[in-house]
């Protein structure tokens, strides 16, 4: 599947309305906000449709997955939104991650645990809250809200240390553009960021650059580590390749149209996470040009003054922190 799906589901007491934007959505938050109730409603509607007393509006089938036989059931589900409650131990397994890779389904997973085997976006982690829209009516209306907005908290005017999740082209780029009084460290993957922050940047002015498209499993412990600390700033673009595409270096209406609404072009069957799509898009768009891109080794043309400035400029506030 690709694109976004708005779902309305409810009974005579409780209604939910939300939009699912990517292949993996995480639901978490306080107890008693209605996460399990939502999954139960989806299950009851799937079993008995309107005869369940539940109304559900969705352009694709919605259903649930649970229990020991999940791996037998899942291959039979296609082009659906699959809801999974937190009491399923298989969520943490490599087998589950392998099973939903290349899947035509979207998944809505209730869990407070970070799931490092799954590449979900920081921006697709939601809580549920009561919507004020219909206050006073008999029915309670619930909506999703985004839990993490890490870049809103940028209060630094300068940084000394830059921790980069990437160990290839992204790391090469940032290492090459900073001046000598700044240190750039690769965490060699998303799971290394927490440790590198503890070792190097915890108390100093530090900028963390990571791929927001797949950093979801890490964001909670990072946000809690830097809570109330103005000395650490997160910059989480979708990916380094997305940043290059956003910089305007690559001409053409096609790229701009895609960036305006990437989800409409990203099939879950092909791309487990958006970062891989943006890499493929950049490679494709720069093939046979002086900006020919390879993830493993940075094309030095990206370090020419004009190109460098365009990319740093696309980083907004984080770019200023690096270049000043």
């Amino acid at each position: 599947m690709k694109g976004s799906y708005t779902i309305r589901v409810g009974n005579n007491r409780l209604r939910y309305e939300f939009t699912i934007c990517r292949n993996i959505t995480i639901l978490k938050g306080n107890s008693a906000t209605g996460k399990t109730t939502l999954v139960e409603m989806i299950r009851e509607y799937y079993e008995d449709h309107e005869l369940s007393g539940i109304q559900l509006e969705s352009s694709v089938p919605c259903r649930t997955l649970s229990g020991r036989d999940w791996s037998i059931i899942l291959p039979a589900i296609e082009n659906s939104i699959v809801f999974i409650d937190e009491d399923n131990d298989f969520l943490r397994t490599v087998e589950f991650a392998d099973a939903i890779r290349n899947s035509s389904n979207y998944y809505v997973i209730v869990t407070r645990e970070g799931l490092p085997n799954l590449p979900y976006s920081v921006s697709e982690i939601y809580g549920i809250r009561e919507s004020g829209k219909y206050a006073g009516l008999k029915q309670v209306y619930n909506e999703f809200y985004r839990i993490y907005n890490p870049e809103n908290e940028n209060k630094l005017s300068e940084v000394n240390t830059i921790i980069v999740e990437d160990s290839n082209s992204g790391y090469e780029f940032f290492s090459a553009i900073v001046d000598d009084n700044k240190k750039v460290i690769s965490s060699e993957g998303k799971s290394g960021v927490f440790g590198k922050l503890l070792e190097n940047g915890f108390e100093k002015n530090c900028l963390v650059i990571a791929d927001g498209a797949a950093f979801g499993s890490e964001i909670d412990r990072i946000m809690k580590l830097i809570h109330n600390m103005e000395s650490v700033v997160l910059y989480l673009p979708e990916s380094f390749e997305w940043l290059i595409l956003m910089s305007g270096l690559i001409d053409g209406k096609r790229v701009q149209d895609i960036l305006a609404d990437p989800g409409d072009n990203i099939f879950s069957e092909k791309y487990f996470s958006w970062e891989r799509y943006f890499t493929d898009l950049l490679v494709e768009e720069t093939n046979n040009s002086y900006l020919k891109y390879a993830k493993r080794k940075l094309n030095p043309n990206y370090l020419h003054d004009t190109e460098k400035k365009r990319i740093v400029s696309a980083m907004d506030k984080a770019g200023k922190l690096i270049s000043e």
Partner: peptide
């Protein structure tokens, strides 16, 4: 406090 808890627990869970 959380400032003491997070660096320890954060190396074990996410």
């Amino acid at each position: 406090n959380m400032r003491e808890l997070v660096p320890i627990a954060g190396t074990i869970v996410r």
